[in-house]
Amino acid sequence: MTSFELVEPRSLEETFALLDRDDPAVRPIAGGTALMLMMKSGLFSPLRLISLRRVEPRLAGIAFADGSVRIGAMTTFAALEHSPEIRRHLPVVTRTMRTLANPRVRNVATVGGNLAHADTHLDLPLVWIALGAQAVVVSPRGERIVAVEDLYRGYYETVLHHDELIAALHVPLRPTWRSVYVKVTTRTAHDWPALGIAVSLARDGSIIRDARIAVGAATKKATRLIQAETVLRGAAIDAAAVDDALLARAGDAAIGEISIEADSRGSASYKQHLLRVYLGRAVRAAAAAEPGA
């Protein structure tokens, strides 16, 4: 790694004064697990890193209120993983944690850093999109809300300005929805995914009332599958199973609405096949899950 300046402000105001709207080599750092990899490999050479670990407590903590949960950006994955309230209200998050990195990385990596990193191979942003989560973004100009599905512009790129910070995540609690995350790895179980897919469904008896689907690792950025959701919305499903023809139509819609990218974990055509297969499996698993799962 090349040398840089590391500063540790104690308030948001100090932090804003240190950020630079025009210079991408000036960046906030939270847990740092992802940034360290980029710096070690020479992909990123910062001039200044602004550590958020001493910034006021408003960037941490998990708080439930008014049918939603606010998760501070500096909340570690381990804190989410071991929160009994998260397990009760957002069990898909607890389950997904077990598939992420390893306990040491989860002890350090943060919810906000993970969102800001904008690597399409990250699992959790897909879950947040399926759950309908919104990022609270702060800057010297005030606060704005960005739905997680609108946070990404491209590969490693967010819509955030360099002087903006993710302060928290708001996740609506929808006790009748059922959610599933499927991480598809092609080499070892703990490899980066070749495909990640998150599905959240609301059922009225045998009707899919609403659906939210997000895909990553096969696309430039975490992407919501609007057309596939439309195919599923209003569809009747058998109590025991979801019709093959319906899933095939949803798969066609998904393939048609996104551009699938090859990487070292699979060709585009292979990932297209994975998407068809795992979209079906994820929808079936979500449809069969208990409400609130």
Binding site: L6, G32, T33, M36, A78, R104, V105, N107, V108
Partner: peptide, 9 residues
């Protein structure tokens, strides 16, 4: 808390 000290400044 256990950390990977190679990724820890």
């Amino acid at each position: 808390i256990a950390v990977s000290s190679c990724l820890f400044l």
